[in-house]
Amino acid sequence: MPVPLLEVTNIAKRYGHIEALRGANFTVYPGEIVALLGDNGAGKSSLIKTICGVTKPDAGEIRFNGQVVTIDSPQASRDLGIETVYQDLALAPDLDPAGNLFLGKEILYPGLLGWLGVLDKPEMRRQAEASFARLNVKLQDINAKVVNMSGGQRQGVAVARAMVWASKIILMDEPTAALGVVQTRNVSELIRQVKAAGVAVVLVSHNLPYVFEIADRIEVMRLGRRVARFVTAETTMDEVLDAMTGVTAPQEAA
């Protein structure tokens, strides 16, 4: 295996009495698709939120390209080239797709207008259209507010936004949970495109057949810790399920 792109070690996070993460480890290699699996409440979302800077861990270390880094805000994570597709998508429903794509990274007119903070809406729309077309994200009306779009279209906007800005890693927390068959296939297509562009994908999912279809590796969490790691091609669903449910003993200590 090459040097890890992201190496998260010994992360602890508690919410009141609940220990969501108890010394969790997690590894991402450059350009791979790695699935993060675990039962409900295993701590997957908590781990994702740590990596993307939404929550601060109580303890632990994050290494990026071998360097210890501090991720204390969503911006810090984005600055490392990490983008996130949140479980709730984190879209602004009253903005249109272009507005969401460029939220926080708006393009301004050059010169005086830009100094005054005037948005270059035509340019953002043009680039957004090009991105959606390139990623094959199908929207009926690029001018419609996101609130008026179907679940699949919103998903497409959220995924496209992450893909446009990510240079190193995309984190996806249950990207297909609410989707039908067709949209799930679309998201898979997007994920493969991301990988082809050399960007790593971290995929949280409950859908084992789907994970086996798309992921290069699998890491399993249970009760706030990593309990197993698999190379997808060298394992079976039963083996992974056993690790998730705790039938097999953890392969590694905390």
Binding site: P74, R78, P93, G104, K105
Partner: peptide, 11 residues
């Protein structure tokens, strides 16, 4: 529209 989304977008 979505305060959390705005925050996560770096605003």
């Amino acid at each position: 529209s979505n305060k959390e989304a705005a925050r996560r977008a770096g605003i």
